[in-house]
Design a protein around this nucleic acid. Structure first.
Length: 878
RNA sequence: GGGCGAUUAGCUCAGCUGGUUUAGAGCGUCUGCCUUACAAGCAGAGGGUCUGCGGUUCGAAUCCGUAAUCGCCCACCA
C-alpha cells in the first residue's frame, strides 16, 4: 500500500463516496419484512439556500437515519422542498421588479410562468447542498409540496373539510400584509417593540355652547377618517359629562356618537377611545356590539382610499406625519408624547401589518384541537425536550380558527367557485371545475355554463400543504389503503425547530389523525437555534453566519457535522464557534492517523501474544462494550452530543492513548497475528460506531481495512450487539492508569526522560496481575514490594497503596515535605468530615446501611493514607 | 400582563428518583516535549464556597420557598 499522508484530506474522499453511495442506491428504501425507520425532512423553501440551521437539523436527521440503518432497520429519509407561498412569491416579485416588471401588469398565468421558471432555476439547489453534508436521503422519492400528487391531495382535503363543515368562508378582521397584498395568519405576525408617539387629539362636542372638547389618545391619528364612534367607560366619573353626547372628528368634521363600554381602560390616556371598526381588531368588536358603521379608509397597499379625503393616495405613514402637522395647525392637537408600543410585522415581508376586514377562508379548529392534544400529553407522541408539551397544550387550549386563504398566485389555488343566481353569489367547492359545474347545476337547478363559474382568486397558506406532508409523501390522501403508507406510517422521528411547533408540528398531528388514522411520527426532536459564539442569532444583516459550504470546504463535512453535534443538546441553542468544527476536523485526523499506525505494522502470525497485549485486548473489549451500551442508551434519549462525546473519548483516550500504546510493537518489530486481528476488529467496530456521525472518513477507512467488492459499504453493515462487560477488569485498569499517570508526573517533575527506565517500590496490596502493562507503559525496570519507602524515594498514593521511585540524590527534601504536608492536610480534612458524620447519632440511626458502610470505608481508607503520609514525612525528616 | 426554562471551572455543558473517596466532561489556559501514527499531536498541571437568602433533612448542586439576572413562548391597552 502506498504511503498515506500524515494529515487527512477530506476533499479526496467525500465526493467520491457520496457519488458511490448514490450510484449504488444505498439510500433507497422499499418496504420489506424489516422494521421501518422513517424520517420525513422538514421541506426547506424550494428556492432557499443552506444555512447553519439546516446544517444542524439535517445532520441530526442523518445521524438518526444512518444509525437506524446500521441497527438492521429499513431506514428511509424522504427529502423534498416546500413551495413556500409567500416567501417565493415575494422573491419572484422582487426579481420581476428588478427587471422593471410589475406584478399588476401580468396575468395570473404569466406570473406563474415566471414563478415556475424561478423555481426550476433555483429549486433544488439546497438539495444539492445537502448531499455535500452527507445526507443519506432517498433521492428517488424527492417530493415538492406543489407537485401533482401533493396538489391533488391538497385540493381533495380542502373539499373534504368543506363538506364536513370544518372549512368556512367569512368576513373577519385579518392581518393584512400591504406589501404582498394578502391576509396572513396570526402566527405569521411578529410583534416588535417600537418607540413611537402618542397623539392627544381634540374632539369637540357637537352643539356645545361652551365649546368643550374631549381628548383622545391615539398612536394612529391617520385613522381618524375611519372613526365612527368615541368610547368611554360607563364607570369613568371624569368622562361622565360626555355620556349621550356627540363629538366631532377633528379635521374630518363628521359627527360621531359617544358610546359606553367597559372595554375602555379608565386610566389609559384620558379614558376616551376613538373607535375605528375597520382598522383595529378590538374596535371591530366594539363596532359589532354597538352596531357602528364601518368605514374602510385603506387600499390594499395601505394607501388611503377615497374616504381619506385630501390624503387619498398617500401612504399610511406619510399621512400620519402630515395629519399630525395639520392637526397642530388647526389647533386640534392637545399634545404629543413619546410612547413605546408593540407593532405587528409580517414575518415574511417585514412590513407593518394592517388589521383589515375581508372575506377569507378559515378552518374551524375546535375539532382538530380535540383530537391532537391527548397523544402528546400522554407521550404517545414524545416531545424532546419535554417542556414543549406545555407550550403545545396551551396553544391548543386557546386555539383560534386558522385563516388559510392568501391573496397570492403562487400556491394551491382555492378550489371554490362562485356563480350568480339572481344577483346573489353562491359558492360551490369541488376538486375540479367540471365537478364544480355539475354540483352548481344540481344545487341551482339552472343550466349553467363553464363560463358562469369563477374560481376563487386566492391560494392556500403554505402550511395547508405541509400539514399533510407525512401522509402525501406516501400518497396517503389519494390512495389511503396503499402498502407504502401502511409500512412507513407513522414515521419514527421528526426533527425540527420549536419555532414551527404551531405552524407545522401541531397541524401535522391534526391531519395525521384526521386522514391517516394515527400519529404522523412517534418522536419530535426540537433542535435549538444556531447562534454565534457570543449568543447572537445568525443573520444575513449581521454577517455573522458562516457559509456552510465554505465550512465544509475548509474542515470537511465530517468535521463540520461533528463540530455542530458536539454542542447541541436537544432544545438548547448552540453557540457556534469555528473552534468546535476545528475539533471535529482534528478528530477526523486522529482517526486517520490511528489507521496509519495500524497499516504500517508487519504481522508475524507465529509470534506468541505478549501478556500485556492479551490483557489489553480483554480490557478494551470490555471498555468498547460498555461504551456501546452507553451510546445506545443516550441515543434512545436523543442525547446525541453526549453519545458522540462517549465515542470520541472511547476512540481518543481509551483506544488511541491507552490500548494502542500498550499493544504497539517496538519500532521495526512485528505485531503478533492474534493481537493484530483483534485490533482490526476493534477498529472496525469503532468505525461503525462513528459512521452515523462521520460518514465519509469511516467509509474511506472501512474500505481500506479489508478486501471489499464494488457495492460493499460500511453503511450496509450491522452494528454488532454489545458483548459482556467485565466491570472488575475495567476498575483494575483504571487503577493501573492512575499508577502510570503517577509515574509520568514524577518523571516530569524530576526531569527523568521517558527513555530512562525507573524502578518502582510498592507498599501495600498491589495488584500485580497487570504488571506486564505497567512495566511497558511506565518504562519500569522492576516492581519491588517494600515495607517502608526509602528516604530518598518520591511516592504517591493510589487508593491505599503507596508507590515510590527511588531517586537517590535527585530529591529536594523541602519541596517533598511541603507536598506531603499539603496532602496530609487534605486527607485530614476529609477524614474529619467523615468522622463528623459517623459520630452523628442521627446519621447512624437514619441513614441506610449501605451509606454508613461506605462512610466507614472512607474512614478506614483515609486513616490508612494519613498513616502512610505521616510515615513518609517522618522518613524524610530523619 | 400570563406562562415556561435557565443560572455549576475562563467558555459550552453533564450531574436522572437527595448519600458513588469533600463536584465531572470537552474546549481553552499553564508547563514540558518535533518520543518515526498524529504539533490538527504527546505528557503533565492548575481551575468551582454549584446566582443570593431562607427552609425541609442525619445529609442538599440535587427537594421547597423567595429574590435577582438572563432567555424563550403566548397575549397585544388605544
Amino acid at each position: 500500500m502506498s504511503e498515506l499522508a500524515s494529515k487527512y484530506n477530506p476533499h479526496e474522499v467525500e465526493d467520491k463516496w457520496y457519488e458511490y453511495w448514490e450510484r449504488h442506491k444505498m439510500f433507497h428504501s422499499v418496504p420489506d419484512e424489516r422494521e421501518p425507520y422513517c424520517i420525513v425532512i422538514p421541506p426547506p423553501n424550494v428556492t432557499g439556500v443552506l444555512h447553519m440551521g439546516h446544517m444542524l437539523n439535517n445532520t441530526i436527521q442523518d445521524i438518526l437515519i444512518r444509525r437506524a440503518r446500521m441497527m438492521g432497520k429499513n431506514a428511509l429519509w424522504v427529502p423534498g422542498t416546500d413551495h413556500a407561498a409567500i416567501a417565493t412569491e415575494t422573491k419572484v416579485i422582487q426579481k420581476l421588479a428588478d427587471e422593471g416588471i410589475k406584478k399588476t401588469d401580468l396575468t395570473r398565468e404569466q406570473f406563474l410562468e415566471h414563478a415556475w421558471d424561478w423555481t426550476h432555476k433555483h429549486g433544488g439547489i439546497i438539495l444539492q447542498q445537502l448531499r455535500k453534508l452527507g445526507a443519506s436521503c432517498d433521492w428517488d422519492r424527492t417530493a415538492f409540496t406543489m407537485d401533482e400528487l401533493r396538489s391533488k391531495s391538497v385540493t381533495k382535503v380542502f373539499c373534504d373539510l368543506y363538506d364536513k363543515g370544518l372549512i368556512y368562508r367569512g368576513l373577519r378582521m385579518v392581518n393584512w400584509d400591504p406589501k404582498n397584498k394578502t391576509a396572513i395568519s396570526d402566527d405569521e405576525v411578529n410583534f416588535v417593540q417600537e418607540h413611537s408617539k402618542l397623539y392627544y387629539l381634540r374632539y369637540y362636542v357637537a352643539d356645545d355652547p361652551e365649546g368643550r372638547y374631549a381628548v383622545v389618545a391615539t398612536t394612529r391619528p391617520e385613522t381618524i377618517m375611519g372613526d365612527t364612534a368615541m368610547c368611554i367607560n360607563p364607570k369613568d366619573p371624569k368622562n361622565e359629562w360626555l355620556k349621550g353626547k356627540k363629538v366631532i372628528v377633528p379635521l374630518v368634521g363628521r359627527e360621531i356618537p359617544v358610546i359606553e363600554d367597559r372595554y375602555v381602560e379608565i386610566d389609559f390616556g384620558t379614558g376616551c377611545l376613538k373607535v375605528t371598526p375597520a382598522h383595529d381588531k378590538n374596535d371591530y368588536m366594539l363596532g359589532k356590539t354597538h352596531n357602528l358603521e364601518t368605514i374602510d379608509i385603506f387600499n390594499e397597499d395601505a394607501t388611503l382610499n377615497e374616504h381619506g379625503g385630501k390624503y387619498a393616495g398617500m401612504d399610511r405613514f406619510e399621512v400620519r406625519k402630515q395629519i399630525a402637522r395639520d392637526l397642530e395647525a388647526a389647533g386640534l392637537m392637545e399634545k404629543v408624547e413619546d410612547y413605546t408600543n408593540n407593532v405587528g410585522y409580517s414575518e415574511r415581508t417585514k412590513v407593518a401589518i394592517e388589521p383589515r376586514l375581508s372575506l377569507q377562508w378559515f378552518i374551524d379548529m375546535r375539532h382538530f384541537a380535540e383530537i391532537s392534544l391527548g397523544p402528546v400529553m400522554e407521550d404517545y407522541i414524545r416531545f424532546v425536550p419535554e417542556k414543549y408539551k406545555t407550550t403545545y397544550r396551551l396553544w391548543l387550549e386557546n386555539i383560534q380558527d386558522w385563516c388559510i386563504s392568501r391573496q397570492l398566485w403562487w400556491g394551491h389555488r382555492i378550489p371554490a367557485y362562485y356563480y350568480d343566481v339572481d344577483g346573489e353569489t353562491r359558492i360551490v367547492v369541488a376538486e375540479s371545475k367540471e365537478a364544480a359545474l355539475e354540483k352548481a347545476r344540481a344545487e341551482s337547478g339552472l343550466d349553467l355554463k363553464m363560463d358562469d363559474l369563477v374560481q376563487d382568486e386566492g391560494a392556500l397558506d403554505t402550511w395547508f400543504s405541509s400539514w399533510l406532508w407525512p401522509i402525501t409523501l406516501f400518497n396517503g390522501i389519494l390512495d389511503p389503503e396503499n402498502e407504502e403508507l401502511k409500512y412507513y406510517y407513522p414515521t419514527a422521528t421528526l426533527v425540527t425547530g420549536p419555532d414551527i411547533i404551531f405552524f407545522w408540528v401541531a397541524r401535522m398531528i391534526m391531519a395525521g389523525y384526521e386522514y391517516a388514522g394515527d400519529k404522523p411520527f412517534s418522536n419530535v426532536y426540537f433542535t435549538g437555534i444556531v447562534r454565534d459564539k457570543i449568543g447572537r442569532k445568525m443573520s444575513k444583516s449581521l454577517g455573522n453566519s458562516p457559509d456552510p459550504l465554505e465550512l465544509i470546504e475548509k474542515f470537511g463535512a465530517d468535521g463540520v457535522r461533528m463540530g455542530l453535534m458536539l454542542s447541541a443538546p436537544a432544545g438548547n441553542d448552540i453557540m457556534y464557534d469555528d473552534a468546535l468544527v476545528e475539533q471535529g476536523r482534528n478528530f477526523a485526523n486522529k482517526i486517520w492517523n490511528a489507521f496509519r499506525l495500524l497499516q504500517g505494522w508487519t504481522v508475524d502470525e507465529n509470534m506468541a501474544q505478549p501478556e500485556s497485549s492479551r490483557i489489553a485486548v480483554e480490557w478494551f473489549g470490555s471498555q468498547l462494550h460498555k461504551t456501546m451500551v452507553e451510546v445506545e442508551d443516550l441515543m434512545g434519549k436523543f442525547r446525541i452530543s453526549e453519545a458522540l462525546m462517549a465515542v470520541y473519548k472511547l476512540f481518543w483516550d481509551e483506544f488511541s492513548s491507552w490500548y494502542l500504546e500498550v499493544i504497539k510493537p517496538a519500532y521495526g518489530s512485528p505485531v503478533d497475528g492474534k493481537t493484530f486481528a483483534e485490533t482490526m476488529r476493534f477498529f472496525e467496530i469503532l468505525l461503525q460506531l462513528l459512521h452515523p456521525f462521520m460518514p465519509f472518513i469511516t467509509e474511506e477507512l472501512w474500505q481500506h481495512i479489508a478486501e471489499r467488492k464494488d457495492g460493499d459499504s460500511i453503511m450496509k453493515t450491522t452494528l454488532p450487539e454489545a458483548g459482556t462487560v467485565d466491570e472488575s477488569l475495567l476498575a483494575r485498569f483504571e487503577t493501573l492508569k492512575e499508577i502510570v499517570t503517577g509515574l509520568r508526573a514524577i518523571r516530569k517533575q524530576r526531569n527523568i526522560p521517558n527513555k530512562e527506565e525507573i524502578a518502582v517500590e510498592v507498599k501495600g496490596a498491589h495488584d500485580s496481575g497487570l504488571d506486564s502493562i505497567l512495566l511497558k507503559m511506565g518504562n519500569v525496570r522492576e516492581i519491588t514490594p517494600v515495607d517502608e519507602k526509602g528516604a530518598t524515594s518520591v511516592a504517591f498514593l493510589v487508593g491505599p497503596v503507596e508507590y515510590s521511585v527511588p531517586l537517590a540524590d535527585k530529591i529536594n527534601v523541602e519541596e517533598e515535605l511541603a507536598k506531603l504536608e499539603k496532602e496530609l492536610k487534605r486527607f485530614e480534612g476529609f477524614l474529619a468530615g467523615v468522622e463528623k458524620k459517623l459520630s452523628n447519632e442521627r446519621f447512624v440511626a437514619n441513614a441506610p446501611e449501605q451509606v454508613i458502610a461506605l462512610e466507614r470505608k472512607k474512614q478506614s481508607d483515609a486513616t490508612e493514607k494519613i498513616a502512610a503520609i505521616k510515615a513518609s514525612i517522618a522518613a524524610l525528616k530523619a
